[in-house]
Structures are given as structure tokens and as C-alpha cells.
Amino acid sequence: MYKVIEKEILHENLVKMEIEAPLVAKSAKPGQFIILRVDEKGERIPLTIADFDRKKGTVTIIFLEVGKTTKKLGTLEVGDCIESFTGPLGEPSDIRKYGTTICVGGGVGIACLYPIARALKEKGNRVISILGARTKSLLIMEKEIGKYSDELIVVTDDGSKGRKGFVSDALKELIDKGVKVDLVMAIGPVIMMKVISDLTKPYGIKTLVSLNPIMVDGTGMCGSCRVTVNGEIKFACVDGPEFDGHGVDFDNLMLRNNRFREEEGIALKRYMEEQWQCIGMGKKHGDKA
């Protein structure tokens, strides 16, 4: 059992948790992830290691509540336990001195980007970060990433914070301005990573993306997480999750991520109804008192 040591709600459905997992913390590196199962009947889901503290023996995760598992996880409080928590999985990011690196993060992907940006900076790279969100209140970790960036650009779809537009617009501007870019590291929604990769390809700028296919075991055993890269089958859990963005078949990834749409809907609806019944019953008791 893995205890929740700290919990912070970053935004109404964006949660940060520090979990006690000494073995994972001891070996964790930027770019890796864990797979957890909230309870006995739970699904195994992957979440990026957003931070780790080897001394304290803890691992930080940041997750967006999108479906049953992440919502259930969000209900845990400090002191509660997670049934299983396995990691670190996947290959760590290839942290080297590249020169100028641009870290592009979108949505909850920013959480995954944070430890990588930090490591790149600590290696002596010049780090320019471009963070994007739909709207101001959804923007996360601006301060944390800012601390390790030589330059920080914020964009929102609606212009409520920073500049109006998409992360790709900001990146294009930098390139057009003649900034010599040695590496683009892009983590966010699949569509964002696709657009960024399409943008950098004609310039020949090395672009790494972190893929998020549906996983089960995370050890290379099931092939649920397979993605097509340069025409070859790769398993994101052991060969990735980072890949050369110019070779990734993003369209196939998007299709494969929708494999269980119907079932996910059923699970979520059922879960919300159960939760609702609990709340409803609570109210009744309250009324009587």
C-alpha cells in the first residue's frame, strides 16, 4: 500500500499528490512514469512522475480528473492509501547539453514537462518554455517551470492569460525570429504534439514528444501501448514514452486512444451515479437532524 502524504488541488479537477513510494523515488528519473491501481477493482493507469524526493521517499503525480479512475484517485485524502504503485517505468529522457532547447507544454502535459525542463536547465542548456492552456485558470506550474527557464512564454486559447493563440504559434514566431533551436521537447494533447512536430519537420529541428497510449502492464508484455514510429511497431511503455516526433503516426495513436470510449463512458456514468447516491443519502440524513 502506498500512502498519500500530501494533496493539493491545483484547479477544480487538477490534483497534485505526493505518494510514499521509496523504491520508486530511489530510481526515478525525468521522463519516466508510474502505473497505479487505486483499489482492488481498479484499472491500471499510467501517470508521469512529476517530481520525486529521494530523501523523503516520495513521488509526486499531477493528474487531470477525466474519467472514473482519475476521479476516484482525486477523492483520496492525505493518509489514504493507493493499492498499487509501480515504477519508475519507461526510458528516462535523454538529458544532454543540446544548446538551446524549447520546452513546449500543453494542459496537464506541463506537469510531465516540469522535471525534464529542470534537468535540461541543470545540464546547462538554455531553456525557453512555452506553456499553453485553454484558459487562464487551467494553466499550471508556471512558477515552477519559470524558475528553470531563461525565457517563459504563456499562451491561452482565449487570451485570458499571456498571449492569445496556440503554443505552435509562439514556437513558429521564435523560429521565424531566427532563434537557433537545437531541441524541441513537446508534451501535451496528441493533437498539439502532432502540430508541433509538423511545424518543426521542414526546419529539421530535432523534436521529442512524450506519447500517452492506453497501457495495462507497463512492462512490454501486452502491446496495448503500441505506437507506430517510422513505420515500426514500438511499445511506449518500454521503448518510450519519448519518441522522435517526426516519425510518429499520431493519427493512429488518436484512433487507438479511443478504443474504449464507450466502456469508459459507462464506467464514469456508473461511478458518478454511485457518488451521487451517496451525496443524496447524506443530505437526507442531514434533513432529519
Binding site: K41, E43, R44, V216, D217, C222, F260, E263, I266, A267
Partner: peptide
């Protein structure tokens, strides 16, 4: 693995589809 380890045959009582 979905069916045996994760008990997807008992979905939605078990979460894995």
C-alpha cells in the same frame, strides 16, 4: 491480461474494460 488479471469480464463492477 485484461480479462484474467484485471477481471474485465466483470466490467463494470471491475474498472478495466
Amino acid at each position: 491480461t485484461r480479462v484474467n488479471l484485471m477481471k474485465a469480464y466483470l466490467f463494470p463492477e471491475y474498472d478495466t474494460p
